[in-house]
Design a binder for these strands. Structure first.
Length: 740
RNA sequence: GCGGACGUGGUGGAAUGGUAGACACACAAGACUUAAAAUCUUGAGGGGGCAACCCCGUGCGGGUUCGAGUCCCGCCGUCCGCACCA
């Protein structure tokens, strides 16, 4: 906490942490702030009228300061999944547009309101405007509502909808005419009505828009409902100006400008520029009537939590001095040990004494901040702290420079946005406030791999209760699979395969798995079953198979140990055919497994080990010159190959092979390149693209030899039916294709 | 609505544009056993044929190529992310 609190205060000093009042969704049962997804997750009891909207002062980190940088740096993260980069780019949500100032009609405007600022990404469609709309919380809406009770009621309705309606997509567009009129920026004689509309968001742009019904679907729906003009201003490519009309589908793409005075005939891009230049040059209330503006969807990060767990925010509230940082000598601010949890609400706020303190500046009685930090703050810099956990400063810059960025980060896809974006922000923010400064210290994670989750089938009894896998017995296969409840014999509905959750009871206890199968076996199954980026489906049958392999490997090593030379024996001068074959298999497997582990293709690595094990088993029954030496090599290779995935078994095997060292400490063996390539290769022969035969031929055979041999093959002759070969394509070591 | 990914046997899944289904699970037959378990051997994409072998086959329809699961275009479906973002 000491270090994290120090970081917080340094961010505060840099203006990267701040306090602001905003509207939140408040859970009146738990007395805490609800995230949007919690309101909208359909859990029922939290949605609807139970959620309150309230004004709350909370702490934020200014992630928006880095919006551009976080977006622009995404392409440099070339070892991150495309998916995650796309998700982050969408989340940051950069859009280029303009802020336009509209003069309000003096006769209708409330006192103190002379202009209205709106944000648009489509200034080109300005001549298609037929109304303006503001959010219910917009100052202009509030001012207008003061003298208009019907409008005030409408605004209240909008606010309630904002926090309670889960199905936004079905919510109807609704508006209320404020009676205020605004002058069109390009024609002061053109007055447009200003509405309060439920689909305008206060926290995006300026909380106000202009509506161009012909160019935006929402605006069109709104215009049709309130009978506002619909003037087409963009002619989509391939449409005829004489016949083009807007019915119920807005033309929101690019095209040629029409009905737009001096813009007519321009492309949308040119019209954007023309309007921008025009408005930038115009003056209104002492400033340009329009300015180009880049907007982001990304909001600042609210880090306040009304919870006991989490790092206390090191701030003291003093009536005289205001917000006072806790002095460095008083850090860390610790959580009380005697908090109570018998009531809802923040235990720190409720604690009888904890929040009482004196102001470090004036010495008067003051109050501690009772919010704690979001635990995502902790996870945003732990990797930097880990480079030297003993450091007296939060981060040891030299250690960080040496170790960071993290070479390979592995985590679930569920962190694609929050954790990974917060970390990218926080690392920059702490660097800019004097910690971990260095040219390589901007992005925390050089490479990212998102692994899948462990999933399991779900089962539901006839009366709709979730059943655990141990309650159910399964019969049949494919579409005719059925399940019955063991205790009652009644049929069971087999449900979706989903992430294990206690709620749906589709869980298998890791302790049980380890107790019954062992950790090696569990790990082996998970690695072997699916590619690591995909979800793995936990099945009893699958883990049984892994268990059999554990036993089989042990037997194989035992057998091999008894048939091999002693450790450290020099290899013979000559190996017989079967011994050489075993050595080739061992070296190929070693090479392939190494490559696949490096590429994180663990399931393929496992398959290769299986394949090699099969060959190894078969070789043990043979007799060949030098076989005992080859067996030792193969057994040692196998042990080393399984070691990363089944370390306990590998150590047992290593010991059985006569060593009293740890295989974990052995270097990965080097495959002999000479044993990786075969003298003779088997290649397929196609006639007109269809495989008809195959041949085994010397690796160094010339194309002419290959062609001649291929044309003599029995299967080829049959398929040619006496026709001559028109063309023969020879791909050395791969394939021959004969066209006839 | 916008953005992205994916679609291969009964199942999980292999396959730098070059023999589709490696490997495993499940299944079946056989060996061993008084029996079962375990283990070992064998079989298997679908269809036809005694067999040799032939035809069809990677969601559907086109295209590029000597050659397409893989590349391109258009559909269909599934999943994921964002979503009244102006």
């Amino acid at each position: 906490y000491r270090h994290q609190q120090k970081l917080f205060l340094d961010l505060l000093a840099k203006g990267l942490a701040y306090r602001k009042s905003s509207k939140v969704n408040w859970d009146p049962v738990d007395h805490t702030v609800l995230a949007n997804e919690q309101v909208l997750d359909g859990r029922g009891w939290r949605s609807g009228a139970l959620v309150e909207s309230r004004e709350l002062t909370q702490w934020f980190f200014k992630i928006s300061h880095y919006s551009d940088e976080l977006l622009n740096a995404l392409p440099t993260l070339d070892k991150w999944p495309e998916k995650v980069r796309t998700m982050q780019a969408n989340w940051i949500g950069r859009s280029e547009g303009m802020t336009l100032t509209w003069a309000l009609d003096k006769k209708t405007a409330p006192k103190g309101h002379a202009t209205l600022e709106i944000y648009t990404t489509r200034p080109d469609t300005l001549f298609g405007a037929s109304f303006l709309a503001v959010a219910a919380d917009h100052p202009l809406a509030k001012a207008a509502a003061e003298k208009n009770t019907a409008l005030a009621a409408f605004c209240d309705e909008c606010r309630r909808m904002g926090t309670s309606v889960a199905d936004l997509e079905t919510a109807e567009k609704q508006g209320f005419d404020t009676g205020i009129r605004a002058q069109h920026p390009l024609d002061k004689d053109w007055l447009l009505p200003i509405y309060v509309a439920n689909f305008v968001l206060m926290d995006y742009g300026t909380g106000a828009i202009f509506g161009c019904p012909s160019g935006d679907q929402r605006d069109l729906d709104f215009a049709r409902k309130y009978d506002l003009p619909v003037v087409p201003v963009i002619l989509p490519p391939g449409q005829d100006a004489a016949t083009f009309a807007i019915t119920n589908k807005a033309a929101d793409g690019d095209g040629t400008m029409i009905n737009s005075r001096f813009l007519d005939g321009m492309t949308t891009a040119a019209a954007f520029d023309a309007v921008a230049k025009n408005l930038e040059a115009r003056e209104l209330a002492g400033q340009p009537a329009g300015t180009r503006k880049v907007n982001f969807r990304l909001r600042d990060w609210g880090i306040s939590r009304q919870r006991y767990w989490g790092c206390p925010i090191p701030i003291i509230h003093c009536e005289t001095c205001g917000i006072v940082p806790v002095p460095a000598k008083d850090l860390p601010v610790k959580l009380p040990d005697d908090a109570t949890f018998d009531k809802p609400g923040n235990p720190l706020d409720r604690h009888p004494t904890w929040k009482n303190c004196v102001c470090p500046t004036c010495g008067k009685r003051a109050r501690r901040e009772t919010d704690t930090m979001d635990t995502f703050v902790d996870s945003s810099w732990y990797y930097a702290r880990f480079t030297n956990p003993q450091s007296v400063t939060p981060i040891d810059t030299e250690a960080a420079k040496y170790w960071l960025p993290v070479d390979q980060y592995i985590g679930g896809i569920e962190h694609a946005i929050l954790h990974l974006l917060y970390s990218r922000f926080f690392f920059r923010a702490i660097s800019d406030s004097g910690h971990a400064t260095g040219s390589n210290l901007r992005e925390p994670f050089a490479a990212l791999f998102t692994q899948g989750m462990v999933t399991h089938e779900t089962y539901k009894s006839a009366d709709g209760k979730w059943l655990t896998p141990t309650d159910v017995s399964l019969q049949g296969e494919g579409a005719s699979r059925t399940a019955t409840e063991i205790s009652s014999g009644l049929p069971v509905v087999i449900g979706d395969i989903i992430k294990m959750s206690k709620n749906k009871k589709n869980v298998v206890d890791p302790d049980d798995i380890i107790a019954h199968w062992g950790a090696d076996c569990a790990r082996w199954f998970m690695l072997s079953d699916s590619p690591p980026e995909r979800d793995v489906i936990w099945t009893e049958a699958g883990v049984q198979g892994a268990g059999r392999f554990v036993q089989r490997t042990w037997r194989l090593i035992e057998d091999a140990a008894s048939k091999s030379v002693a450790p450290g024996t020099a290899p013979p001068a000559l190996f017989g055919d079967d011994a050489t074959a075993l050595r080739r298999a061992a070296h190929k497997a070693l090479d392939g497994v190494a490559r696949n582990i490096e590429g994180l293709r663990f399931n393929v690595a496992v398959a290769q080990i299986y394949e090699f094990t099969n060959e190894f088993s078969a070789a043990l029954g043979k007799s060949s010159e030098g076989l005992d030496s080859a067996i030792r090599e193969a057994a040692e290779f196998l042990t080393q190959m399984i070691a990363p995935m089944m370390p306990h078994l590998a150590e047992e095997c290593w010991s059985r092979l006569g060593y009293n060292t740890l295989v974990a400490k052995e270097p990965w063996p080097k495959a002999d390149p000479a044993l990786l390539v075969d003298d003779r290769v088997t290649i397929a022969v196609q006639v007109n693209g269809k495989r008809r035969d195959e041949m085994t031929i010397s690796r160094s055979a010339s194309n002419e030899d290959i062609e001649a041999t291929a044309l003599r093959l029995e299967g080829v002759v049959r398929a040619m039916e006496g026709r001559p070969a028109k063309k023969v394509i020879v791909v050395p070591l791969r394939i021959v294709n004969i066209l006839s």
